[in-house]
Design a protein around this nucleic acid. Structure first.
Lengths: 143, 143
DNA sequence: ATGATATCGCAACACAGTTGCATTGATTGT
DNA sequence: ACAATCAATGCAACTGTGTTGCGATATCAT
């Protein structure tokens, strides 16, 4: 884990007014270094060797997500995946999931909220709040 | 459960070449009578009183989904919901989920596959297969 | 009616995620 | 630098969804 990720992680956590504990810093640094969205299980595996309780990992991930440092991605395999909130993904954005290797990546921000809202009509009396868009297909490795 | 749903369910099952067992017929009839997508748990509750094992329900739902009589809807609460495949929903279609009461309904078929595909660009080498679109908001009751 | 076998029911399991509580440790004030 | 505070951790136990193996049962073709 390059030192830049660790110090960046610590700075982000302190900026939120939270305690910069080992767990938080290491987990966020790991996510900063990762370009794709990864699961709780995958993080746990990468962390093995270092002391880290399952529950703590759940709580740290929730804490980071609550403060908008990362975001949770729902998927059809019913496992949450986590990804850092880079500037490009600050707004609503779509996700891509490979149907072969289950890799999940964030797609660039698309002004799809408004556009897609117009593509379809909600039943009378329904109110629009947000849109969730997942593209399924094959990633470059699995094509 | 009106008789028409039961006989319709039985006909659909036989058409697929499967055995028209009590469980299959009753479950499919229940889904035919339901306008919104419901969970395994909700079906189990509605079936209580009648002999029906949890595992059988899971297997029947999978069997119906495999043959395209119903479809499974993934959601951010990580619970599958099931809905009959009416003609209007035969193609790719979006879903609506109420953020208050968790009600899920299928939205009309929208030619969003091609349109949305054009809205965003996949990374180089990626292949498009399908799109999943969920609108979140408030249903008429929860507005 | 009967036999072949698809389907069911039960038990046990796998895995994601949560809660309560005692312990630990990061920060703050002195 | 050190103690006090209380946020955060680790552990144990739990919940809920979904799966697997296998013997028992029920459907359908004959």
């Amino acid at each position: 884990m390059p030192n830049t990720y660790v110090s960046a992680a610590e700075a982000m956590i302190r900026k939120e007014g939270g305690r910069a504990t080992d767990s938080r810093v290491r987990i966020l640094a790991l996510l900063l270094a990762e370009d794709q969205a990864i699961t709780h299980r995958e993080i746990e595996t990468r962390m093995s060797g270092q002391q880290l309780d399952r529950v703590t990992l759940y709580r740290v991930l929730q804490w980071l997500a609550d403060r908008g440092l990362i975001h949770k991605i729902s998927s059809d395999d019913h496992v949450w995946r986590f990804h850092v909130n880079h500037a490009a993904y600050a707004h609503q954005h779509a996700h891509f999931k490979c149907t072969n290797c289950a890799k999940v990546v964030c797609l660039e921000d698309l002004a799809s909220g408004r556009q897609s809202e117009r593509l379809l009509t909600l039943p009378a009396g329904y109110r629009f709040q947000a849109i969730e868009l997942t593209i399924k297909g094959l990633c470059a490795k699995c094509v």
